[in-house]
Nucleic acid binder design. Structure first.
Lengths: 226, 226
DNA sequence: ACGTTAGCGGACGCCCCCGTCCGTTTGGCT
DNA sequence: AGCCAAACGGACGGGGGCGTCCGCTAACGT
C-alpha cells in the first residue's frame, strides 16, 4: 500500500510538461480560458491523456500557467505600495494592471473569475489587502477621492475585462485610455458630487454559496490514516 | 389556383410565437445569448421545430426579442438629445443605458457584439449618430471635456458589460456606481491632463479588412462603359 | 545490454448542442 | 359536421468537447 511516489519526473515527461504550459499560456492569452483541453494538447504535440495526467483538472493547469503572471501582478502592487507618493503609486497600479489584462485575455478571466476554490484566491486576497492600504494612504495624501472604496478598483478591473477589440494593439490602446479615464474619475476634487453607494464585490463575504462546480478537493491522505 | 400564401398566422401559431419571444427574452436577459435554442423552446412549451419554424436563425430570434429594448435605447437617446442641457442629457443617457444593460445581460451582448450583419446595426448606427451630436453640443456647452470622443462612450458601454455580479440588485448598484464614475471622468475640468489617444472602436471604418485603401480615390466604374 | 516501468497516445463512451424531416394533431372555413 | 392544410413535436444524424482506459514505446537503473 505505501507506495513511494517517485517525485522525480522522467526527462521526456518534464519536457512535455513544459510544452504543455507553454501551449496553455499561449492559447489562454490569445483566446481566453474556453479553449478546449485537446487544443492545448495538440499545440503541445502530446496526446490528451498526457495533458490530463499532468494537470488532472483545468483549474490546475490554469493556476500553473498563470503563476508568473500572478506574481507579476503582485510585483506591480508591491511597487505601487513602495512609491513614496501613494496616489501616483495607485495610478501606476491601475495603469499597469489594466495593461497586463489587456495583453492577456485568459489571465483576466482567471484573475477575476470567482471560481470556487480558485487557486489564486490567496494571492488575490493579499493583493486586495495591500491595495486597501495604498488607497488609504492615497486618500490621506489628498490625491484619491475620499469616497473611493476598494470595490471601485474591482469594478474597474472587471470593466476593463469587458473591453474587447480585434487587434492586440487596439486592445492595449483601449485599455490604456480606459485606465486614464478611471484615474480621472478617482481623482479627488472638492467640487464633485457624491457617488452612488458602492456594491460589495470582492471584499469580504464573497462566499461561493451554491456549489455549482464540485472542485473535487481530494486529499491524498498523505499520512497513514485509517 | 393562384395560391395566396396567407400572411395571417393561425391562432395557436400566434400564441406560440408570443410564448417563444417571452421565453427568449427571459432566458436571454438572465443567462445571456448562449442559452441553447432548445432551452427556449422547452420554456415556451413547444418543440424545437416550432422554434426554428418561427425563427429560422438565432439572429432572427435575438433581433425580435430585443426589438423593444432597442427601441427603449433609442428613446433614451432621443430624450437625452431633447434635453435643453446637453451635458445633463448625455449624463442621463449614460446612466440609463448602463442601467438597461445591467438589467439585461443578453441585450448587452446583443447590443455590443459586432456580429456581421447583425440585425440592430442600423439602429446602432442611428444611435451613435445622435449621440455624436449630443456630445458635440455638450462639449460646446462646457460640461463635457473637449477631448472626449464617441468611442469613449462605446468603451464605457463595453466596460459596463464586463461588470458581472451575482444578484440582480448588486448588478444594478455596481452599474450605477460605474456610470457615475464614468460621468466624473467625462466631466470638463481645465486642470486635467490630456488623455491617451482613443482607439477606433465603433465609429467609422469598422471593416475587418481592406479598410486602409492606399488608393484613396476609388472609382466606382459606373457600369455603363463599353 | 537488458529488464523494468514510468510515461505516452490513440481510441472509446458519454453528453450536449445544432438544424431538419415526417407522421400527427388541430385550428379554420364551408 | 367534415375537410384540408397549417402547424406541431418527437425523432434523427452530425459535430464537438470531455474525461478515461489500455496496449505500446522508450527512458532509466544495474
Amino acid at each position: 500500500m505505501s507506495e513511494r511516489l517517485p517525485h522525480t519526473l522522467r526527462s521526456d515527461a518534464l519536457d512535455n510538461r513544459a510544452s504543455l504550459l507553454d501551449a496553455a499560456r499561449a492559447l489562454f492569452s490569445a483566446d481566453g480560458l474556453d479553449v478546449p483541453m485537446r487544443e492545448i494538447a495538440r499545440r503541445a504535440g502530446v496526446g490528451p491523456a498526457t495533458l490530463y495526467r499532468h494537470f488532472p483538472t483545468k483549474q490546475t493547469l490554469i493556476a500553473e500557467a498563470f503563476a508568473d503572471q500572478l506574481h507579476a501582478c503582485r510585483t506591480i502592487v508591491d511597487e505601487g505600495c513602495a512609491d513614496p507618493d501613494p496616489w501616483r503609486g495607485l495610478r501606476g497600479v491601475i495603469e499597469k494592471i489594466c495593461e497586463v489584462h489587456a495583453l492577456d485575455r485568459g489571465f483576466t478571466e482567471a484573475f477575476l473569475s470567482t471560481v470556487p476554490g480558485g487557486p489564486d484566491l490567496a494571492g488575490r486576497a493579499y493583493t486586495l489587502e495591500a491595495l486597501a492600504g495604498l488607497a488609504r494612504r492615497a486618500k490621506d495624501a489628498g490625491g484619491l477621492r475620499p469616497d473611493f472604496v476598494l470595490d471601485d478598483l474591482v469594478l474597474v478591473f472587471m470593466a476593463n475585462k469587458g473591453i474587447r477589440t480585434r487587434s492586440a494593439a487596439t486592445q492595449v490602446a483601449a485599455s490604456r485610455r480606459f485606465a486614464a479615464l478611471a484615474i480621472e474619475a478617482f481623482a479627488a476634487d472638492p467640487e464633485r458630487a457624491p457617488l452612488p453607494p458602492a456594491p460589495r464585490l470582492a471584499t469580504a463575504a464573497n462566499k461561493p454559496a451554491a456549489a455549482n462546480n464540485s472542485a473535487a478537493t481530494n486529499e491524498p491522505a498523505a499520512g497513514g490514516g485509517s
